[in-house]
Amino acid sequence: MNLQQLRYVVATAEHRTMTDAARSLYIAQPALSRAIRDLERELGMTLFARSGRGVIVTAQGRRVVKLAREALDAVHEIEALSAQGRSPEAELRIASPPGLEPGVAGRILRAYSAEHPKVRVHIVRCDGRDGVVSAIRDQRADLGLTDLPVPADLISHPLERQEIVLISPPGLDLPDPVPVRMLDGMPLVLPAPGGIRRREFDSLFAKYGVAPVAALETDGRDDRLEPVRAGAASLLWYRGTAEQAVRAGLVVRSLDPSLRRVIALVHARRRLPAIAQEFLTVAEGGSAA
Rank of each mutant, 00 (worst) to 15 (best):
R34F: 07
A68P: 10
V124A: 05
E284S: 11
D153W: 03
L25C: 07
L272A: 03
D256R: 07
L265G: 06
V9L: 13
L183T: 11
Q139W: 09
L190I: 06
G85R: 10
L145S: 02
R224K: 15
A288V: 14
G171M: 05
L250F: 10
P227V: 11
A114F: 02
R16K: 13
V282S: 05
D142V: 00
A135Y: 06
V178N: 02
V189L: 07
V55W: 08
G185K: 01
R270S: 09
G195R: 06
G44P: 12
I167Q: 00
D153S: 07
T46N: 02
C126D: 07
R37N: 14
V210C: 08
L216G: 05
V64S: 01
Q4R: 13
P149S: 04
V189M: 06
K118S: 15
H116M: 06
D184F: 05
G286H: 04
P98L: 10
V10N: 08
A215C: 04
T241P: 01
C126T: 12
G195A: 05
P257Q: 12
L100A: 09
R199P: 06
N2C: 03
H116L: 02
A114L: 10
L72P: 15
P151D: 11
D219L: 04
H267V: 09
R270V: 12
L259K: 04
D223S: 11
R198I: 14
V246Y: 05
E42M: 06
F48P: 11
R34T: 14
G103V: 04
D20E: 14
R261W: 01
S234N: 05
D202F: 06
L216S: 03
E115D: 11
D142Q: 14
P151V: 13
A13V: 08
E14K: 07
A141F: 07
V246L: 11
L148Q: 10
R269W: 11
S82Y: 06
S134L: 13
A13M: 07
S287N: 05
A206E: 15
D20P: 00
R260H: 10
P97V: 02
E217R: 00
L92M: 05
P187K: 13
A49N: 07
P177K: 05
L25D: 09
S254M: 10
F205S: 05
I78A: 12
L47D: 04
S87G: 03
A22P: 09
V262K: 00
Y112H: 00
R16S: 14
H267A: 12
L225P: 04
A248Q: 15
D73I: 02
I108H: 02
R53I: 10
E217L: 12
V180Q: 01
H122E: 14
L235Y: 15
E278L: 08
Y8N: 15
A289W: 03
A28H: 15
Y26T: 07
